[in-house]
């Protein structure tokens, strides 16, 4: 039996790991929301496609790095296709119509994943073959470090992109004020395309990095995507920093809840968090009222 303190450390580690994944998904959601004004409920399926495509590519003999890169590109392309095929044609429709479209795409993609990959779980090898680390009495899997690293690098790159490149500044301007962006000649259709491609890429990376820890199934993305939403709502939906904090926070809350409640209730905790935040602080924990 672990001591209480090391038990808490253990919860913290697993919370931070999953929380990083939620944060990445939330980040993609927030960027999409700010650019297009819609919630992409199909984001979880991007995670699935990224992870399962990487697995299949490895199976047909691609070296790891190539398989992962191609899988990320495939997921990005799925995002592009989704935007061109379903979002762009309906861009003048109501927000509710658009969100239902993303639900439609989501279940279609999940069905497709079921047809292609079936119901059994797959896995990817850990990125390095090292023994688990012991830290303050808790066990830390090396793969967790990769997940944390991915989150840090992705966030750093994203903020660099937003702050130091012209394209990034354009996107950021568009995120702040869509009409103004259009007036100064930023093409909203292209930005929307960017948002979906970006979502596909980030989500696929999240899927590939987490698979060695959790395994991958055709429906893995459903819950991950929803948790991403919970994280985004926690952080206030329009706020990239908030999304990251929300993701990590949700991961940690879940891990502690899972440690103290019956295990299956973990998913219920996230839903309760979401509903409570929606009802009491619709602008998120960071947003002003």
């Amino acid at each position: 039996m672990l001591g209480t303190e090391s038990q808490y450390m253990q919860y913290l580690f697993s919370g931070l790991t999953l929380g990083s994944i939620y944060a990445l998904i939330a980040l993609a959601l927030v960027v999409t929301f700010n650019i297009t004004g819609i919630f992409n409920l199909a984001i979880g399926e991007f995670v699935t496609i990224g992870a399962l495509a990487a697995i299949s590519l490895r199976e047909v003999g691609c070296p790891n790095a190539l398989a992962y890169t191609l899988a990320v590109i495939i997921a990005g392309l799925v995002g592009v296709l989704m935007e061109r095929g379903t979002i762009n044609p309906a861009r003048k429709a109501s927000v509710l119509t658009l969100i239902i479209i993303t639900i439609g795409v989501s279940i279609a993609l999940r069905g497709a994943a079921l047809l292609i990959w079936g119901t059994h779980p797959y896995t990817l090898p850990a990125f390095v073959d090292a023994a688990p680390l012991s830290f303050l009495g808790a066990v830390l899997i090396p793969q967790s470090l990769f997940v944390l690293g991915l989150a840090v690098v992705a966030v750093a790159l994203l903020f660099t992109f937003f702050d130091f490149t012209f394209a990034g500044k354009a996107v950021r301007a568009a995120m702040m004020n869509r009409t103004a962006a259009r007036l100064v000649g930023i093409n909203p259709a292209r930005l929307s395309l960017f948002a979906f491609a970006f979502s596909g890429i980030i989500a696929a990376l999240a899927g590939i990095f987490i698979t060695p820890i959790t395994t991958a199934t055709y429906d893995m993305g459903f819950m991950l995507g929803l948790k991403g939403f919970v994280a985004a709502i926690l952080g206030g939906v329009t706020n990239a920093t908030g999304a990251i904090i929300g993701g990590v926070l949700l991961g940690v809350i879940e891990a502690f809840a899972a440690g103290t409640l019956p295990s299956g209730l973990k998913d219920a905790v996230a839903m309760v968090v979401m509903i409570v935040v929606l009802l009491t602080r619709p602008t998120g924990i960071l947003g002003q009222r």
């Binding site: 795409v105 989501s106 279940i107 279609a108 999940r110 079921l114 047809l115």
Partner: peptide
């Protein structure tokens, strides 16, 4: 094929 693959078509119809 196995499972609830019919959801593909539901998704497409919805869209």
């Amino acid at each position: 094929a196995g499972g609830e693959f019919e959801i593909i078509f539901f998704g497409i119809i919805f869209v």
